[in-house]
Computed example of a mutant assay.
Amino acid sequence: MSSPSTSFTSIPILDFSLTKSPTTKNAFLSQLRHSLINVGFLYLSNHTVSSAVIDSLLEYIPKLFALPQEAKDAITMANSEHFLGYSRLGKELTKGKVDRREQFDFATPHISRWKEGDPDHYRLWGPSQWPSEDLIPGFRSVFEQYLNQVQDLSDHFSSLIAESFGLDPEALDGFYDSPEKMQHRAKIVHYPVTHDGSDQGVGPHYDAGFLTFLLQASPHRGLQVQNLSGEWIDAPPIPGTFVVNIGKALEFVTSGLARATSHRVLSPTGTTPRYSVPFFQNIGLDVKLTERVLTFPPEILALSASRGRVGATDSVNFSEFDKEPSGKVNLIGRVKSHPDVAEIHYPELFKQIFPTGHSGGASAY
């Protein structure tokens, strides 16, 4: 168990504008290194994503969830072999409890490369389903602008992570496919106010990939991060920032230097719903993390050795990265989270994971 001196009690705020000058960049890299090793979460201010695009998106989000139910159901995720589309409230569970959220899954533009004979996980990436332009004009254009800009930010951020660990800026490039083959995912999430005593918006979990960039799209508290001692630390919305956190894949390839941190979302109290927009940066579908070994300077490795041991967390770990390509790991996660979709589009994998079928409840990571 970690000692109190090494267990964080707040989430650090990093000023991205420091990276623009050689005189301040090293200060940013030092702060980033601390955040990666000791916290696994950070706020990023003065980033490069357009505030005008973000403001436009924030105006659209309540309108998106106010669409007629039949319009939302028309793009239900069950239509999509790519697990993209709309999910009704309560369709997912974490650790056996219902996640109280309604959501749309979208992704950066992509044409599926899968062809007969290819592995199933190639089918995971493909085009999004979008609500009718007549019902919410301009939404798709604004959100695709947003996704493209966050994608560019995440690419730059990966190079800064490499530098902060004493590596060349390009050290992580080999974990990504060429740009035309990559796809990244995002959700737009609605957490309604609950009155039934349940406060689980999303239960304790880790993210799977390299990086998550979260836009907290309403002023509600709810996001909590589990520190090294197992305590839950609030990560309240800070206007103009992203919350950035580390996924299990990045923890794996950095030999635990960058730590994935358990987190959850509590349902909002009061009278208005909470909204959020997480962007999940993927890595290449065929990448096997055990086949790409990074070598770090001894002085960097020593920093994690002084961190202290991580206490017991409430989250489920990802156990497949040591034996399966990244795309297969993510596909397994999607099947477990959305078995109703998997039963339609991936019947063989569905039977492997749910040999006796499923009862309608899905166990999300």
Rank of each mutant, 00 (worst) to 15 (best):
K181S: 06
G308F: 05
A362Q: 09
I136Q: 03
L331K: 01
Q145R: 08
V142P: 11
K248C: 03
D340K: 07
F143R: 00
V189E: 14
S21Y: 11
T94I: 12
G126F: 09
R264S: 06
V253Q: 11
H205E: 02
L64M: 10
P137R: 00
I37R: 05
D134S: 14
F296K: 04
T271Y: 05
R264D: 07
S5V: 00
S164L: 04
I11R: 01
H121Y: 15
G308I: 06
T23W: 05
S112A: 10
T76L: 05
G308S: 04
K25Y: 09
G96N: 07
P297N: 10
D322R: 15
L57A: 11
P169N: 11
S35Q: 01
G96P: 10
S154R: 09
A52K: 08
A66S: 14
L84E: 07
V244Q: 02
T9K: 14
L29M: 07
F8V: 09
I246A: 03
I246F: 03
H82P: 01
H263A: 00
F350Y: 15
T24I: 13
V277S: 09
L44W: 08
G90W: 11
A260N: 07
D314F: 08
S255A: 12
G90L: 08
L257G: 09
P12I: 03
V53T: 13
I61D: 06
V341S: 14
A362M: 02
F8P: 02
I75P: 12
S132E: 09
D99T: 10
K336C: 10
T313A: 12
S30D: 13
Y191F: 10
S359C: 00
P347Y: 06
G361M: 03
T356V: 07
H110K: 15
G96A: 07
I283P: 05
E81D: 08
A362D: 06
V293F: 07
G166Y: 13
R264G: 01
V189C: 14
G240N: 12
A217T: 08
A107F: 08
F321C: 09
V53R: 00
T271M: 03
P131C: 13
S198M: 04
E320R: 09
R307F: 03
N46I: 03
E170R: 12
I136G: 05
F143W: 07
S51P: 08
S35E: 00
D15M: 02
G40R: 02
E70G: 01
L257H: 07
W114M: 02
S359G: 12
I11C: 10
V310F: 04
Y191K: 08
H263F: 06
I37C: 07
H184Q: 07
Q103F: 15
K323S: 15
Q145C: 06
K97Q: 11
K248I: 01
G327F: 14
R309L: 08
K323P: 02
G166L: 01
D105T: 06
E180H: 08
T212S: 12
I75M: 07
G96H: 03
L301F: 07
Y122R: 15
Y176K: 13
T261Q: 06
H47K: 01
F210A: 14
R100K: 13
L257Y: 14
A362K: 02
L153Y: 05
R185P: 00
P109S: 08
W130D: 11
